[in-house]
């Protein structure tokens, strides 16, 4: 079977599975979030009521958009404090069999923000930094709650379209509780068991030593007590030569974190190698399950949207736009990687795909996955806000690496993260109908709601916040010694690494071009700020739009109303998304992956 056919079949299988699941799952999400009685609400009613009673929540209380936003912000601030304190106090807390010391203050700040914002950027190495209690009670809990927060915001925005002359958009506490209790927890439990069946580990054992067949000599980088690499006067890592026949195998409650890592589009690996690690992602089947899990809820939410607004065609239109963007860019990544490196080809190295070799660019990829499954994973993880990786994006070809970078820069909406994908594409839909309205000279409408100056101001804040943070952050990093210190690959690739880091942080993705040494005070602080503002400023703007739309009356559909479910609208939506992405990022991309591509191909 040719490599291209393998990629096409794998992609088609994954997409067919998630699209088949979109209808039942999307319907289920609409039911539980709107409190329409179904089997889950009946089974969980007592537990749900108990949670409300213990937390002092009045489930019948409706909130204005600003109260909803303030509740959300306070909830996430509290989550950030808990994750920070768990890291700083972990040496005195239980479930730390390796007796790992406290995480440094700057890294703890960065990680707390990363997990609260659904980014899961990891400047640290999990197996040598985080105690089991920190991983499970801090990071995994935030994996659930940050995904639930995103879903709550999406449902609140959809209510903005469905409600008429309403001052409220729902109850944040109820939305977070229901999305965690009825969606994320049961799905994660199922996936965790399935992953354990494939060999993903789940235990609280201390790390195990295995004796290897051969002796191994390697240069081991020295670290300080906080786990940061020691550098010499020139800034190079200090290493010591070590010969050993002992390999330490890290253990831990991995499967339970792995499942929500994918389903919640979080992406924070239990281990530093993330889903490339055999204890996180051991087989081709576990890899298939993980890719499908990343895409599952975001695609299903388009159906939820259709159900809630009473016109499923509206959801299908958004799904179609997401699918087209995803399929095209995933194919570009695969073609770039399978095409291989011209530098190697010019030296007579055979990089063609045959029955006995994968060909193409296998640097940074696991042989058990190959190029097709690695390229598809890279596209899935950056088309959503996941950020898990099963290959090293830094080792991709320039145009292969361009794909994850650009998918994030489009706003992670093809299909996007849990909740974030649907609310981001809805903001672009609002912008699209506004542009169309300007062209035909008619007041723009979307789903019966007039789009006016206030909504456009809020949409502009939403759309401009992230590029501003990303580009300013990148500029600051390349101009300051703190930012330059982390670059091991000066030139176009080093610039790509910095741009990727801030793009990943600003869009709450969390994947990395791993060549950048980012566990420094500069990057921990700057990326932390970008992650927080890149998450919560757009969320506040989204909730403000929800409140504004909910307060409006619904205007009747007339012959002059632009249909928002056909091919014309899908094209308009895709055009708007690509145009905004290109306008924001082309100059930066030209300095990074594009120039690197031409340098590489021009040299041969």
């Amino acid at each position: 079977m040719s490599a291209t056919l393998k990629f096409a079949l794998l992609g088609a299988l994954v997409l067919a599975l998630v699209i088949l699941c979109a209808k039942p799952l999307g319907h289920y999400i609409a039911d539980v979030m709107e409190g329409r009685p179904n089997f889950a609400l009946r089974w969980g009613a007592r537990l749900e009521r108990w949670i409300y009673r213990v937390c002092g929540i009045d489930a019948r209380e409706e909130m204005s958009w600003s109260r909803y936003a303030i509740g959300l912000l306070v909830f996430n601030l509290a989550g950030g404090l808990v994750v920070y304190l768990l890291q700083r106090l972990q040496q005195w807390l239980p479930f730390n069999p390796q007796q790992l010391p406290a995480v440094s203050a700057d890294s703890a700040f960065n990680t707390a923000v990363a997990f609260v914002t659904n980014t899961d950027w990891q400047g640290y190495s999990g197996e040598s930094t985080m105690a089991y209690l920190t991983q499970a009670a801090g990071l995994t809990v935030q994996n659930f709650l940050s995904a639930a927060t995103g879903l709550a915001v999406a449902i609140a925005l959809i209510r903005g379209f469905t409600r008429r002359s309403s001052a409220t958009i729902g109850n944040f506490w109820v939305d977070v509780t229901r999305s965690s209790l009825y969606l994320l927890l049961p799905l994660s439990a199922l996936l965790a068991v399935a992953l354990m069946g494939q060999g993903v580990i789940q235990n609280l054992h201390s790390y195990r030593d295995a004796t290897t067949i051969e002796k191994l000599t390697f240069d081991n980088p020295k670290s300080d007590s906080a786990g940061k690499p020691l550098l010499d006067a020139k800034g190079n890592p200090i290493t010591e030569s070590v010969t050993t026949q002992i390999q330490t195998l890290p253990m831990g409650p991995v499967a339970s974190q792995e499942a929500i890592k994918e389903l919640g589009t979080n992406g924070g690996g239990f281990f530093n190698a993330n889903s490339a690690h055999p204890f996180e992602n051991p087989t081709a089947l576990s890899n298939f399950m993980e890719i499908a899990a990343i895409l599952l809820i975001p695609f299903a939410l388009t159906y939820t949207f259709g159900v809630m607004v009473g016109d499923r065609r509206q959801g299908f239109a958004l799904m179609a736009a997401m699918l087209i963007l995803f399929a095209v860019l995933a194919a570009v990544a695969f073609v770039s990687e399978q095409g291989g490196n011209p530098s190697l080809a010019s030296q007579g190295i055979d990089a063609t795909s045959t029955a006995s070799q994968s060909g193409g660019n296998m640097e940074g990829k696991e042989t058990r996955f190959g190029i097709a499954a690695s390229a598809l994973f890279a596209a899935a993880t950056t088309a959503t806000s996941c950020g898990a990786v099963n290959s090293m994006h830094d080792s991709m070809m320039p145009m292969g690496g361009f794909v994850p970078l650009f998918l994030m820069q489009l706003g992670e909406l093809a299909p996007g993260g849990v909740g974030t994908g649907i609310y981001t594409i809805l903001i672009f839909a609002i912008l699209g109908v506004f542009i169309a309205g300007l062209m035909i000279g008619r007041t723009p409408e979307y789903l019966g709601k007039k789009i006016q100056a206030r909504e456009m101001k809020l949409a502009s804040i939403f759309i401009l916040t992230t590029p501003t943070l990303v580009l300013l952050g990148t500029a600051l990093a390349v101009m300051t010694s703190g930012g330059q210190a982390g670059v091991f690959n000066p030139g176009a690739h080093g610039f790509s690494e910095i741009l990727y880091a801030f793009t990943s942080a600003g869009n709450n993705n969390g994947s990395a071009f791993a060549g950048l040494s980012a566990n420094t005070v500069f990057y921990n602080v700057s990326l932390g700020i970008v992650m927080w503002l890149g998450r919560f400023w757009p969320i506040v703007a989204t909730l403000a739009i929800a409140g504004s739309l909910a307060a409006k009356k619904r205007v009747p559909v007339t012959e002059g109303t632009m249909p928002t479910h056909g091919a014309l609208f899908i094209s308009l939506l895709i055009g708007t998304i690509v145009l905004i992405g290109v306008l924001n990022y082309v100059p930066a991309l030209a300095l990074g992956p594009v120039v690197e591509h031409f340098m590489l191909s021009g040299a041969h």
Binding site: S66, A69, I70, L73, V74, N76, L77, G80, L81, Y84, R88, A105, D106, A108, F109, A112, V113, Q452, A453, R454, K457, L458, I461, V525, G528, I529, W532, L533, F536, W537, V540, A541, L543, A544
Partner: peptide
């Protein structure tokens, strides 16, 4: 050092809180 990062976290919260308050007062400009 902890106080520095806790204050920074609080500052980020207040920056988001402040945006919510500002947007509540944002008119439609018409």
């Amino acid at each position: 050092m902890d106080i520095v990062y806790l204050v920074l976290l609080l500052g980020l919260f207040l920056a988001s809180f402040g945006l919510a308050l500002a947007l509540e007062r944002l008119g439609d400009g018409s």
